[in-house]
Design a binder for these strands. Structure first.
Ligand SMILES: Nc1ncnc2c1ncn2[C@H]1C[C@H](O)[C@@H](COP(=O)(O)OP(=O)(O)OP(=O)(O)O)O1
Ligand SMILES: [Mg+2]
Length: 1081
DNA sequence: GGGGGAAGGACCA
DNA sequence: TTCCTGGTCCTTCCCCC
């Protein structure tokens, strides 16, 4: 803009970025471009004059041919909203008017107000640089919903002039108004003026319009008189050629920075230069590019809207998800990211009507900003998160030692909708104008040919040398195709709509009506603040007019794009999918800001909060593994299924059952065969007092009640310190973590830390101040739990708990325990924390899993206890609390009054619970043999569902071998040492060994997952399975090596030597990597 | 020589 | 301290038929 000194801007930008890795990468890319230029220059130098003359002649022929196809009879308008996002924001927030502000975040700016542009702030500029240019710059977070609604309003206007208009991005549209002009006897310029007036009236936004005989020219013209203006190019050959002659090549859509630079080296700055150097260009660039240059030079472009797409076509080429994060190199962390991507992508694919694709591409951006892609094309179509993750993982692993700042996952090569469902297809076929295959072919041909024979086809994207562009017209074409499809559907009637509704959200007939209503509402909505800010009375009328226009367009304009959203291509920014995408982008930008500040020292917590991120510490490797494990469990639970249900059993309940079992187990010889059997499968521990061999799950000796471990007197100093800190941040963290299922991992991590807090807290707060209280029965216990596990319904829990209590009372040796318990409850009551403390404790519970054994054995999670068993998420805890308190009382009552009838009943219940538990344990015992385990799993799950299994559903079932390898203490810990219960295997583990114990579990679990991934991948890629089974695909390797060696240069050989065929891509990649590493050495 | 996969890139909003 | 995201298309290299 006027106020800027370009040199100053350049300097500031340079100063701000010169030391960044991003800048280094830019330089690297520049160097690559320079290299390419150098090659081309060498090629140019090698050209003989005769060759050059021949190229020139060839080009002349082509130009003449193209000239013959020139069509100046059509009138095109290209409408481009002014500073669109910023303008919408100004309307929404009148305070912004005239201010220098940017829409976007510190990471990236979408657009800037004109006031900000005066400082040199631009689209696609990182916010932190913009701040340097304009310190007072305000940042407005993007609100894509708002922009979409505003865009709809503008389109309602466009539709009146060209029902077939091609929407570009949210703020652009191309209209072919030839017919309108003829019908109303007006010029293009008059139409343009009218459109601008109407757009302003109805949306309070300004736009600029270009008027020209074809689409490309109109688009260029729309920028000529930018803010709130229009520019018409006379529809004569001379005028067009004159216009093009002086036009900077960079203004041509499709020519970017690189192409401009390359062309400049060969003397091409303007479109006239294209003609002048036509011979050289033809020699240096590809035929497609050359042809495109020729058309540009002549000022030729799309004069007709492109034809509709084939029925049932997917309408998009690919779908992807990518995310930037702080540079990561740990495998576990990257794989966690990949999993998130896979899940998000799978969700998107489902949303888009159940897309399935054959090609999976992994995108990697190194911390150096270097970009790579790794793709594999499978013999089968994939769509589930599991599949995407598996395939992506293979690709990722092959690159593994690397530090990345971005991962992306893309699926392409879609299965065509029409071919999928035979039933559906028959309906479609009835209405389909042509056979799909034919159409497909035709369309492809059109893409190639139509643009050559004349101006019929679209503008024909191909541009410069190896760097070709011009994709955006094509996008518009796709868009239209989709929409046309829609129109056919709608016209065809309700039947088809019903049949299509399920798989194509764009084709829901009802949405048309909804659209209009929504438009109406949304218009008011987003204009509301504007109404307040402006003189007022006109706004309602304007909104009403816009709504009316929309309604008119919706009902009257039966063109293919009659429905607002219906007309929007999945591929373009305006489609619902794209709107969602922009929203995601905004969220991601915020997240990126958080991630960035995460590294620095200044207010990272605030930034993270702002970004909605959990406020956890940088995770350790184990934490990440825990995180993954928790994620898998969550996934597992959502997947459903018998086995899952069993395994997703809440830890609390599990433990209760274990306890029930332990306590119910008849002492000594009284035990039935069942318990004996169980014991055989379990690790045992010998009571230090009576030497009775107790099952590992029992904490108290079944004979004499002696605790398995001598109780400790003092909390460990570290634990005490943790306790001190525990009240504040960890609790806050846990809250954040518990709130979202995705962050359960940190919850899980926090759970461990919190557990320690709890356990020591008990010693400190509970025991010490009250030496008079009866000695609490055991050492503190920390449970390793997954916070994702759902507790059983309170009622059920209560029943079980009561059953346990009853069972205890029924058994002679339980009497003692009961007393102890009562005492303990008394202590607890005395210690009943203040509401505040109670809340704090709840928070701790959400994360922390410290449990007093006695409480656990009673099956309660009493809030009053300073040491709490709290594996459940907080939400679950809160509603339970009153019941638990109630239960305390109940139990006390039971003890005092000894209601025998009830006891008998409960004893029966306990018996039942025990039996259930026994059955389960028997199953577990069976599954301890890995083979049996697999068999059982297979038997339990149908074939198709087996793949869900690989998230680690059976990870809890450790084989005896595995258990042997785990650091399970066979002897009681030393006095003063905590022991922790591992809920994975049920073992009691010394605190000092707990970490390694869990590590072992995780390692094992990861191993199991690996195997399952292998299995799934093998299913997806049958031939690779063959390869693997046969001991490697030998044939391809040697053949290829020979071919590669024989064929060309070093570069060729480099790629040629790899493993054979399409199926061996992974091996090839690995081999290539290996070779590269060797070369480096 | 052409089809198709993989990798890399340019470009756009 | 800090440079997005999701999409399109083209080119080059390679293998295979
Ligand atoms: N690089 C980008 N990244 C993200 N969003 C962008 C980018 N460029 C543009 N946009 C968004 C914000 C813009 O308001 C909208 C339309 O783009 P565009 O027409 O180029 O600019 P603009 O409408 O903001 O200004 P103007 O058209 O007046 O130059 O698209
Ligand atoms: Mg604009």
């Amino acid at each position: 803009m006027e106020g800027v000194d370009p040199e100053h801007v350049k300097r500031v930008v340079y100063e701000a970025s010169k030391d960044s890795p991003h800048y280094a990468n830019e330089q690297r890319k520049d160097a690559a471009v320079e290299q390419k230029i150098a090659r081309m220059q060498a090629q140019a130098r090698a050209l003989t004059p005769a060759e050059l003359a021949a190229h020139t002649a060839s080009m002349d022929a082509r130009l003449a041919e193209l000239e013959g196809q020139r069509d100046l009879t059509r009138t095109w308008l290209h409408v481009d909203m002014d500073a669109f996002f910023a303008a919408v924001e100004e309307l929404a927030q009148p305070k912004l008017r005239g201010r220098a502000f940017a829409v976007g975040g510190i990471g990236m700016i979408s657009t800037a107000s004109y006031a900000a542009r005066k400082f040199g702030v631009r689209s696609a500029m990182p916010g932190f640089i913009a701040i340097k240019l304009c310190p007072q710059l305000l940042f407005v977070p993007p609100d894509f919903d708002k922009y979409r609604r505003a865009s709809e309003a503008t389109r309602a206007v466009f539709r009146c002039y060209d029902p077939d208009f091609q929407p570009g991005s949210l703020d652009e549209a191309s209209l072919e108004v030839t017919d309108y002009c003829a019908a109303h006897n007006v010029s293009g310029e008059e139409v343009a003026a009218e459109i601008r007036r109407r757009v302003q009236e109805e949306t309070h936004l300004t736009c600029s319009v270009g008027i020209a005989p074809n689409r490309m020219l109109a688009k260029i013209c729309s920028d000529k008189n930018k803010p709130n203006g229009q520019f018409a190019l006379e529809a004569t050959r001379d005028a067009v050629l004159t216009f093009m002659a002086s036009l900077s090549i960079r203004k041509v859509p499709g020519v970017g920075k690189v192409t401009q630079k390359v062309l400049a080296r060969f003397g091409v700055q303007t479109c006239a230069d294209l003609l002048e150097h036509r011979g050289l260009l033809e020699a240096l660039f590809s035929p497609i590019s050359v042809d495109w240059f020729a058309r540009v030079a002549l000022g030729l472009g799309e004069t007709r809207h492109p034809p509709p797409p084939a029925e049932g076509e997917v309408g998009r080429r690919g779908i992807s998800h990518e995310r930037t994060f702080r540079p990561l190199s740990r495998r576990s962390e990257l794989e966690a990211k990949l999993r998130e991507l896979a899940e998000a992508l799978a969700a998107d694919m489902a949303e888009e009507g159940g897309l399935r694709g054959k090609t999976v591409t992994l995108k990697l951006k190194a911390s150096t900003f270097e970009l790579h892609t790794r793709a594999t094309t499978l013999p089968t179509y994939v769509h589930t998160a599991e599949e995407l993750y598996t395939v992506g993982l293979r690709l990722l692993r092959a690159e593994m030692p690397c530090e990345l700042r971005l991962l992306g996952l893309r699926v392409s090569n879609f299965k065509e909708e029409g071919k999928r469902e035979p039933g559906q297809r028959s309906i479609e076929e009835m209405l389909r104008p042509r056979q799909q295959e034919q159409q497909q072919e035709q369309e492809e041909e059109q893409q190639r040919q139509e643009q050559q024979p004349g101006e019929q086809g679209q503008q024909g994207g191909p541009s410069a040398a190896s760097e070709a562009g011009g994709s955006d017209e094509e996008g518009g074409a796709d868009d239209q195709h989709t929409s046309q499809h829609t129109s056919q559907v709608v016209d065809a009637g309700e039947l088809l709509e019903l049949s299509l509704r399920d798989w194509n959200p764009h084709q829901r007939s009802s949405s048309r009506l909804e659209e209009e209503e929504e438009l109406d509402l949304s218009l008011r909505d987003w204009q509301q603040p504007a109404a307040g800010g402006s003189s007022g009375s006109g706004d309602q009328a304007a909104a009403a007019a816009a709504a009316a226009a929309a309604a008119a367009a919706g009902t009257g304009g039966e063109g293919w794009n009659a429905g607002a959203d219906l007309s929007l291509p999945p591929s373009l920014a305006v489609s619902p999918a794209s709107a969602a995408r922009y929203e995601r982008e905004a969220a991601a930008a915020a997240a990126a800001a958080g991630a960035s500040s995460d590294r620095g020292s200044g207010g990272p917590a605030a930034a993270r909060r702002a970004a909605g991120l959990p406020l956890h510490m940088p995770p350790t490797g184990l934490d990440v593994m825990l995180q993954q494990a928790a994620g898998r469990l969550a996934m597992l639970e959502s997947a459903g299924g018998q086995q899952e249900q069993q395994e997703a059993q809440p830890p609390a309940e599990q433990q209760q059952q274990q306890q029930q079992q332990a306590e119910q187990s008849p002492p000594a010889g009284a035990g039935g065969q069942q318990p004996q059997l169980q014991r055989a499968a379990q690790a045992m521990w010998a009571c230090t007092a009576c030497t009775f061999e107790n099952p590992k799950s029992a904490f108290w000796c079944e004979i004499c009640g002696t605790s398995r471990i001598p109780r400790r007197e003092q909390p460990a100093p570290a634990a005490a310190a943790a306790a001190a800190a525990g009240g504040k941040t960890p609790a806050g963290n846990s809250k954040a973590a518990a709130g979202s299922s995705k962050t359960t991992a940190s919850g899980s991590k926090a759970g461990r830390a919190g557990g320690q807090v709890g356990s020591s807290g008990k010693g400190k707060r509970g025991r010490k101040p009250k030496p008079a209280a009866p000695p609490p029965p055991g050492p503190s216990i920390l449970r390793f739990v997954s916070a994702t596990r759902q507790p059983s319904p309170p009622a059920e829990q209560q029943q079980q708990q009561q059953a346990v209590a009853a069972a205890r009372q029924a058994s002679p040796d339980a009497q003692q325990e009961q007393q102890q318990q009562q005492q303990q409850q008394a202590v607890a009551a005395a210690r009943q924390p203040s509401p505040d403390a109670q809340q704090e404790q709840q928070q701790q519970q959400a994360v922390a899993a410290a449990a007093h054994e006695r409480q656990a054995s009673a099956g309660t999670h009493q809030q009053g206890q300073p040491v709490v068993a709290g594996p459940q998420p907080e939400q679950q805890q809160q509603p339970e609390q009153p019941e638990q308190q109630e239960q305390q009382e109940q139990q006390a009552q039971q003890a005092q009054q000894a209601q025998q009838e009830q006891q008998a009943q409960q004893a029966q219940q306990a018996q039942q619970a025990l039996q259930a538990q026994q059955a389960q344990q028997a199953q577990q015992a069976q599954q301890e043999d890995p083979a049996a385990q697999q068999q059982a799993a297979a038997a339990q799950q149908p074939e198709e569902e087996a793949e869900f299994d690989f998230w680690g559903s059976d990870a809890d079932n450790l084989s005896s071998q595995d258990l042997a390898g785990l650091p399970t203490p066979e002897s009681p810990p030393a006095p003063g040492e905590d022991i922790l219960e591992c809920v994975v295997c049920g073992c009691w583990v010394k605190e000092t060994r707990f970490q390694s114990h869990q590590d072992a579990h995780l390692a094992q679990r990861l191993q199991q997952e690996e195997e399952k991934l292998e299995a799934l991948y093998a299913r997806l890629l049958p031939s690779s399975k063959k390869d693997g089974g046969g001991g490697g695909g030998g044939d391809g390797g040697s053949k290829n090596a020979a071919a590669g060696g024989g064929s060309k240069k070093r570069g060729t050989a480099d790629k040629g030597g790899q493993g054979g065929g399409k199926q061996a891509t992974l091996q090839a990649t690995l081999a290539k990597r290996a070779r590269q590493q060797q070369q480096q050495q």
